[in-house]
Design a protein around this nucleic acid. Sequence first.
DNA 1: ATAAAAAAAGATTTTGTTGTCTTTTATTCT
DNA 2: AGAATAAAAGACAACAAAATCTTTTTTTAT
Lengths: 141, 141
Amino acid sequence: MFSKSCKYAIRAVLFLAANASEAQKMGVREIADALDVPKHFLAKILQDLSRHNLVSSVKGPSGGFFLSDKNMRATLRSVVECIDGPEIFTGCILGLPVCSSENPCPMHKQAVVYRAGLLDLIEHQPIVEVARKVKEQGLKL
Amino acid sequence: MFSKSCKYAIRAVLFLAANASEAQKMGVREIADALDVPKHFLAKILQDLSRHNLVSSVKGPSGGFFLSDKNMRATLRSVVECIDGPEIFTGCILGLPVCSSENPCPMHKQAVVYRAGLLDLIEHQPIVEVARKVKEQGLKL
DNA sequence: ATAAAAAAAGATTTTGTTGTCTTTTATTCT
DNA sequence: AGAATAAAAGACAACAAAATCTTTTTTTAT
C-alpha cells in the first residue's frame, strides 16, 4: 500500500499537528521516540517534507519541527504524494504501462472506484481536522 | 499496492486462464514473452503458485503450465495472499503493530471500508469469470 | 565562542528483483 | 526398454531499490 517512508511521514505529520506548534517545536529525537521509528530515517523524511513546505523547521538551539497554519490546512494527500509520488493514485493496479478507460486492464474499472475511495480518505480532510480527532479520541500514532 | 511479483502473478494466472488448458499447456517462455515480464522471475512465481495448488504444471516435453478446473474456481484473492501474504488485507494501513476497532489508528475506520472494497474486487469473482471477461472484451494483460 | 539543533551527504544493510546455471522429471522416439 | 529431449524446479549470483545508520556541515540561541 503505502511505503514505509510514507507511513512514517503520515504518522509524524499527525503527531506534529497534535502535539507541536510554533511555540512548542519538537526535535527529531522526541518524535522518533514517541512513534518508535528509526530516528535518522525519520529525519530524512522530515527534511523531504520540509523542502516541500509540508512541515516547518527551525535550526539551532530551541529549534525543531512544527506545522504552520498553512501546513495545517494541507491534506494527507500532499504528504503521500510528496513521499510516494503521484503514480500511487494514477498508475495501473496491475503495473501495465498503458491502461486507461479506452484500453483497460481486467481490473481497471474496479480499481478506479477503489482508488476514488482511497483518495476520498486522505484528500478531503485537512490535516488539522484529522489531528483534532486524534486529540479528542486519544488515537494512537 | 501489490508488489511487482503479485502483479505478475495476477497477470500470469489470468493469461493462463484465458489461453491455456490441460490439453494446451503453456511454457514459461511463452507466458513471459506474451506478458513482457522477466522469464526467470516469472518462473519462480509460477513455482510458488504451483506449490500452493493455484496453478497446475506438468514436466517433460509437451509439459507446461495450465489451470485445472479447480484452479479456475479459485479467486484472485488466493493468488494475492499466496504472493504478498494475508497481511496486505489485515495489517494496519499506517503500519502500527496493534490497530483494531478497540484501539484504532487515525485511519482505521476508513481503511476498513476501503479494504472491504478492494477485497470485493478480487474475492467474489472466481478466476474463470474474470478470464471470460478478458476473452470477451479482448482486455490486455 | 559554545552548544544545540536541523540539514546534508554518504555508507551500510536489508529486501526485492532479475539473471545464470544445474538438477530433476516426464515424454517421445527409436 | 533405453536414449534423447523438453520442460519445470531449484540453487545461487548479480543488481537495484528501500531502509537504516554515521558523519559532517550549517544555522542560531545563549
